[in-house]
Design a binder for these strands. Structure first.
Lengths: 193, 193
DNA sequence: GTCATTCTACCTTCTGGTAGGTAGTTTGTC
DNA sequence: GACAAACTACCTACCAGAAGGTAGAATGAC
C-alpha cells in the first residue's frame, strides 16, 4: 500500500499531459497504453474506469497545489512576492512546455460534459485557489503593500481569472510570451509604487 | 446558394451549443442528429466531415463577432462605453445561459488536439478581438478617458484574458454572477474617476 | 427530368470495459 | 524452512456500442 508501483504514477502523469493537451474527451486508454508501454487492459487494473483515473489525477493535482500554497505561506514572503512567485511558477511551466495549462482550468472549460465526481474536484480547486489568493491580497492590503480597488475576494477572483485567461491566450496565439505580458501587467497594477 | 436551407443553419446552431458545452471532442454527429431531428447521414450532405462543420461554424462566429465590433464602432460610443457594452453582452449571454462561453475561447483551450483548419480560425478570432480592444483602449487613452498602465496592446491582451478567465470561473463555480464581479472590477480600474 | 434533400443500410475504427489466465511475490501456518 | 493461499501486475482475447463516414435508393419541389 505504501509501495505504489511506478506504473501507477506513470499512468497518472501521462493522463495529466494528455488532459492538458485536449481535456477529458481528448484522450483514451489506448493513448495512455501506447505512451506507458503497457496494454490497455492493464490500465483498468490500476484504475477500473476512466472516471476513477481522472478523479484520482485531479485529487492529486489539487493536493499538490494546496501543499504548494501552504509551503509558500510558511516561507513568510511578503504578499507581492507570493503573487509574483505564483505567476512566475506558471510562466516557467508554460515557457518550457512542461505543463502549459492548469489541469483544473482546462477541465473547468468542459464542466458540462464532465462526470460529477470530476466536476466536484475541479470546483474544489477553484475554491481553494481563490481562498488562498484572497488571504494573500487581504494581507497585502492590510500591510499597505498592495493597492486594491475592490474587496480582497473580488480582486482575488479577478486575479485568478486573468491568469487563466493568460494561459488561454498563450495557447491560442501559440506564443508562451503572451502569458508573461499579461501577468506582469496584472502584477504591476497591484504594486503601490 | 443565396437560399440556404434552414436545416443547414439548425445544424450549425446545434453544433455551436454542443461545442460551447464540451468542445470539439465533446459532441458527435449522432448528438446533432438527435437534436435537429434528422439522420446522421443527412448531416454529411451539408457538412461532408466534422472538420468542415466546425470550420464553417467558427468562420461564421468570427464573422458575426467582427460585424458586431464594427457595428459598435460606428455607433460612435465612447471607449469606456464600448468596453462596458462588450462585457455586458457576455454577461447577458452567461446569465440567461444562451451562450455561456465564447466558442473560440473554448476551442482554444483544446488547440493541441484541434484540426489545423479550425486552429487557424480560432487564432484569427483572438487576433481580431485583440486588435479591436487595442484600438478602443488606444483611443480611450488618447482622449484621457481611460487610465492605462501599459501599452494599449498589452492592456488589451490583459482585458481579453480577464474576460475569458471570468467565463471560466463562472462555469467552474456554477455561478453566472461571478462573471459580473470580475468584469466590473476590471472596468472600474480603467475609469479615471 | 433534374436536382437538392433526406433516407436506409452499411463499413471501419475506436471507445471504455470485461473475462479469464499466468508469472511472480507475500503472507500465514505448521 | 516448507508449502499452500492470496495477492499483484500484467497479459490475450474478447464485447457492445459509439465514432465518423460512404453508397445508393426514395422523396419532393421546380
Amino acid at each position: 500500500m505504501t509501495n505504489l508501483s511506478s506504473t501507477y504514477d506513470e499512468i497518472l502523469d501521462c493522463a495529466r499531459s494528455l488532459i492538458i493537451a485536449g481535456g477529458y474527451n481528448g484522450f483514451s486508454y489506448a493513448d495512455i497504453a501506447e505512451v506507458v508501454g503497457i496494454r490497455k487492459a492493464s490500465i483498468h487494473h490500476h484504475f477500473p474506469s476512466k472516471v476513477d483515473l481522472v478523479q484520482t489525477l485531479v485529487a492529486r493535482y489539487r493536493k499538490e497545489a494546496e501543499a504548494g500554497m501552504a509551503n509558500l505561506e510558511h516561507q513568510g514572503s511578503d504578499p507581492l512576492e507570493l503573487l509574483r512567485f505564483y505567476a512566475g511558477y506558471w510562466e516557467a511551466c508554460i515557457m518550457d512546455d512542461s505543463a502549459p495549462f492548469c489541469v483544473c482550468a482546462l477541465l473547468a472549460s468542459q464542466l458540462p460534459v464532465l462526470p460529477e465526481e470530476v466536476c466536484l474536484e475541479v470546483r474544489a480547486h477553484f475554491r481553494s485557489l481563490s481562498a488562498w489568493l484572497t488571504s494573500v491580497l487581504e494581507r497585502g492590503a492590510r500591510q499597505g503593500q498592495l493597492q486594491l480597488m475592490g474587496t480582497p475576494h473580488d480582486e482575488a477572483e479577478a486575479f485568478m481569472a486573468t491568469v487563466h485567461g493568460a494561459m488561454l491566450s498563450a495557447r491560442a496565439y501559440g506564443d508562451p510570451k503572451i502569458f508573461g505580458v499579461v501577468t506582469s501587467s496584472l502584477l504591476e497594477r497591484f504594486s503601490s509604487r
